[in-house]
């Protein structure tokens, strides 16, 4: 194949490669293997070389740092592999059997799902409200975008430091403000019934700006004619929002909801940093459980099995989403 590619090196008059492949004069050239032209054209095989050549660098990383760990993780989940290197042997599906009977794993999976549900709703709704407000054409557009979007540029650790401080039961700004308006103090990160909501509030503050931007971009792409026509019909701002803006945003909303669900399922950073999964496991998400069984508990094989159960959940959600979106767009 590669010898065919070299045929291009022949000094030829400029011509489209596609045509040159059909050029009968080529077969007259010396040093050319006559059989090679039989199967595919030089253009075709050069395309193969070029195509895979262009793909090669990405593919190399892709294979080494994505495909390989993905497969190797699957293998690990069938072994008793440990952080210390002990127990390398294959143990079949024992890890999966253990995981399915592990109450802590189910609890952490439940926490992850709970967080996903109670975070996705405000993260989409507040973003929509923000975008709608800004889209009305308020003065000083940059100011609104800066305020709503800036937190998204922070690392999770910064957000956690900010909110751990504001949630401080005695010295925190939030409890102090609550006290000032006569409300009782809340043990934000120390009360098992409240801690997850505290995480949701911090997450809302942190990442809503991203959804806000996506909504804003989508709103500003709605052709002005739609609104002009409605205005002529005497439709007010509210009616325009519900009869034009919202319907036009439907594909965007679907995508934002889907992305948000997938992002929320991966929750780890804020929880690990603010509560470390506590109090008494009430906020521990499954990713933290993977981390803890694998690294704190040394049991890499077992935590690989939990990783794959979690992966299965994500795939299930993605497939579900795929069918929902397909039905919508159909």
């Amino acid at each position: 194949m590669s010898s065919l590619a070299t045929s291009e090196s022949a000094e030829q008059a400029p011509s489209l490669p596609g045509r040159s492949s059909r050029n009968p004069s080529q077969t007259n050239q010396p040093g050319k293997s006559p059989t090679s032209t039989a199967q595919s054209s030089p253009r075709r095989s050069r395309d193969n070389l070029n195509g895979w050549g262009f793909a090669a660098p990405f593919l190399a990383f892709f294979l080494v740092f994505l495909v390989w760990p993905l497969l190797y993780g699957l293998y690990m989940s069938l072994t008793g592999k440990s952080l210390t290197g002990a127990n390398d042997s294959l143990i079949g599906l024992a890890n999966y059997a253990e995981a399915l009977a592990d109450a802590d794993m189910w609890h952490s999976l439940g926490n992850t799902l709970y967080f996903t549900v109670i975070s996705t709703v405000p993260l989409v709704l507040v973003a929509l409200v923000m975008a709608a407000l800004v889209n009305v054409g308020l003065p000083a557009q940059w100011l609104w975008r800066l305020s709503y979007f800036a937190p998204y540029l922070l690392a999770s650790t910064v957000v956690s430091l900010f909110f751990s401080w504001m949630y401080n039961p005695q010295l925190g700004l939030i409890n102090d403000s609550l006290a000032k308006i006569g409300l009782p103090k809340v043990a934000w990160l120390n009360d098992p019934n409240v801690a997850m909501w505290a995480i949701v509030i911090a997450t809302l503050w942190w990442t809503v700006g991203f959804n806000f931007l996506l909504y804003l971009a989508a709103m500003q792409n709605i052709p002005a004619q739609h609104y002009e026509a409605a205005s002529l019909d005497g439709a007010g701002a509210w009616r325009q929002f519900f009869s034009i803006t919202l319907p036009q945003l439907t594909p965007t909303t679907v995508m934002i909801v889907l992305l948000q669900i997938l992002a929320s399922l991966k929750i780890f950073d804020q929880v690990y940093q603010m509560t470390a999964g506590g109090p008494s496991g009430s906020t521990r998400p499954v990713v933290e459980y993977i981390f803890e069984t694998g690294f704190t508990g040394y049991r890499l094989g077992y935590s690989a099995a939990i990783s794959y159960i979690f992966f299965g959940l994500i795939v299930a959600v993605s497939v579900m989403q795929f069918f929902i979106t397909r039905r919508r767009s159909a």
């Binding site: 590669s2 010898s3 590619a5 070299t6 090196s9 490669p17 070389l49 070029n50 262009f54």
Partner: peptide, 12 residues
């Protein structure tokens, strides 16, 4: 990848 510069399998 440049066709013009390739003069043989080894070189490439």
């Amino acid at each position: 990848f440049a066709g013009k510069q390739m003069s043989g399998k080894q070189v490439s």
